[in-house]
């Protein structure tokens, strides 16, 4: 049965789009048929992070408005044949996205895919509420930092009240994904620890993505982190998180950078 998963956070810049692309690609690599949808109308970026920016012809709004068929707007990934992208529109009209439109697109996609990943825009406005509206599960992307944790708490409140699941007395299954985590700084008491964040948010942990230069490297070349360098620390962390989404039990740990000989000789610091 298809699962609709929203990747959300409230705060901007914490890694929603990076995480959507990385988890989507990791699930596809495990053989699942996956579509990632960009809900950030007016500021689309998932296409860029996925390396599909020059292949966008039609978008989510075109489908909502009946200008294009869903099959015309879906872009198939060039690296993974069971990974697809539904890009956002660049229109400035925020009202172009409607509840009815989103409901019918999600219902249609449910018949064709195993996973529907909704990349939420930042904020708590229309785009963010519609991205979570039909979700079965939610990944709340959180940086170990006060403003991000506060906004995550707010978003958790919305997932428990403003989704179709919540309104019908069910629960959206929620997971916290901690990104940009720096083990050394947390050990020195300079950064909120994993335990601190989980205790405050009272939500189970999906994974810990370490702060890493590999994330920027991957987005520079338009490749999901998990595809660009599968052995990098963040790629392994995202793959573990994807396996947990599939129901596997994977020991929780923070992958560390594996320094090569040249790195050691040149004294390069791992990010």
């Amino acid at each position: 049965m298809a699962k609709v998963l929203v990747v959300t956070s409230g705060k901007g810049g914490v890694g929603k789009t990076t995480s959507t692309a990385a988890l989507g690609a990791a699930l596809a690599q495990m053989g699942e048929k996956v579509v990632v949808i960009d809900f950030d109308v007016g500021l689309r970026n998932l296409d860029l992070v996925m390396g599909a920016e020059r292949r966008v012809v039609f978008d989510l709004i075109n489908v909502v408005q009946g200008i294009a068929k869903l099959s015309q707007a879906l872009i198939r990934d060039k690296r993974l044949e069971n990974l697809w992208l539904l890009p956002a529109s660049q229109t400035r009209d925020k009202d172009a996205l409607t509840d009815d439109g989103v409901r019918s697109i999600i219902a249609d996609l449910r018949t064709k895919f195993d996973w529907i990943l909704c990349d939420s825009p930042a904020g708590i406005e229309r785009g963010a509420t519609l991205a979570m509206r039909y979700a079965d599960e939610a990944v709340i992307v959180t940086n170990p930092e006060v403003s991000s944790v506060r906004d995550s708490d707010r978003i958790i409140g919305m997932l428990d009240s403003k989704t179709v699941k919540a309104e019908s007395g069910e629960r959206v299954e929620k997971h916290v994904l901690i990104t940009r985590y720096d083990t050394a700084r947390a050990a020195r008491g300079e950064m909120l620890s994993i335990e601190d964040v989980l205790e405050i948010l009272a939500t189970p942990l999906l994974g810990i993505i370490p702060e890493s230069q590999d994330v920027l490297r991957a987005s520079n070349v338009g490749s999901p982190v998990t595809l660009n360098n599968a052995n990098s620390a963040p790629a392994r962390a995202y793959s573990d998180a994807a396996r947990r989404l599939m129901g596997e039990t994977v020991t929780m740990m923070v992958p560390v950078e594996r320094k090569g000989l040249m790195d050691r000789l040149l004294g390069r610091r791992a990010a």
Binding site: G189, E190, M191, I200
Partner: peptide, 10 residues
């Protein structure tokens, strides 16, 4: 250490 302050404020 500033993390305990962050935690308490939150």
């Amino acid at each position: 250490a500033t993390a305990p302050v962050a935690r308490e404020r939150l």
